[in-house]
């Protein structure tokens, strides 16, 4: 078994009206990694995600899950969609049941699971996203952040190995973003591979291990976020650099190196910690 859980080999895709959406894309997602997919609007992030789940079939090239090319038969799709869970950006266009637990049960019921198994999975996934107490609440009474969590629970109930989220932080306030982040961290700690499309460079730099940068349907860069997000061409394509990376760079220019065990800070918390440690060091006689 290879380290790659998902692979795209020279994938191209054109929409039925002829608009090219993906062009010769080759990339890999590592098993157990946290991967951020970055790109401006229209770069092809959502189209890429729809290929990972088998909703779209490439016009050319191949998508592999593990070592095997995707099987687009009914049985193959059932297996793939329970392995690769896809959460869309807008929760209002995904939730259609009256109550939270009814909605979460939709996926497992489509998989033909037994009543008892469906109940267990619904309870477990609601617990995982911190919505167990709201199981019987009507969906239309939930806040936007809660709806997003229910969407994630709906996908988790299918027990996927890979969770793919399309701009999960969009429309959430800072507190809700924190809540969602901790849910994702827990899932990752439990061994899940998480792929997130985002416009937030600071989030990608601080949270993701790997980054995939798309530009006009093509793969521009792939690798560790701490490396690729510092590249000029990537910063040009994304319209900026992560704030923490920029602070690190400026501090290095004036001779302040915040490196701890060879690593520069990646998030606001780490940066503040490094500055405090540096200040203490300097003030110690």
């Amino acid at each position: 078994m290879t380290d790659a859980i998902l692979t795209l080999k020279n994938v191209a895709y054109r929409y039925p009206d002829g608009t090219p959406a993906l062009d010769n894309c080759s990339l890999t997602v590592r098993r157990g990694s946290r991967t951020a997919v970055l790109g401006t609007n229209g770069a092809g992030k959502t189209t890429l995600f729809l290929h990972l789940n088998g909703i779209l079939r490439p016009s050319a090239g191949q998508v592999l899950c593990g070592d095997n090319p995707l099987d687009y038969s009914r049985a193959g799709m059932r297996k793939l969609r329970s392995q690769v869970g896809l959460v869309f950006q807008n929760p209002d266009s995904q939730l259609f049941s009256a109550s939270v637990q009814e909605d979460v049960s939709f996926g497992p019921m489509n998989m033909g699971l037994e009543e008892r198994e469906v109940r267990t999975r619904v309870a477990e996934s609601l617990l995982a996203v911190g919505m167990a107490a709201s199981a019987d609440r009507p969906v239309h009474n939930l806040s936007y952040g809660q709806k997003k969590r229910v969407c994630i629970a709906g996908v988790l109930a299918m027990k996927p190995e890979i969770l793919v989220l399309d701009e999960p932080m969009a429309g959430l306030d800072a507190a809700m973003q924190q809540e969602l982040m901790s849910v994702l961290d827990q899932l990752h700690a439990a061994g899940m591979t998480i792929i997130i499309a985002t416009h937030d460079l600071d989030f990608a730099y601080g949270w993701a291990d790997d980054g995939i940068v798309m530009e006009a349907g093509r793969l521009l860069a792939q690798g560790a976020t701490t490396e690729i997000l510092l590249r000029d061409d990537v910063q040009m394509a994304l319209g900026g650099a992560p704030l923490i990376a920029e602070i690190n760079r400026r501090l290095l220019l004036i001779g302040i190196d915040l490196r701890d065990n060879g690593y520069l800070p990646r998030s606001k918390g780490e940066l503040l910690q490094a500055i405090t440690a540096q200040t203490r060091q300097e003030s110690t006689p």
Binding site: N53, I55, R74, M77, R78, R81, S82, G85, L86, F88, Q101, E102, S105, F106, G107, P108, M109, N110, M111, G112, L113, E114, E115, V118, R119, V122, G154, V155, M158
Partner: peptide, 15 residues
Amino acid sequence: MDARCYGACAERTRM
């Protein structure tokens, strides 16, 4: 709905 296996099984079960 497609992404959540709708239509992937001949017979849906019920909770």
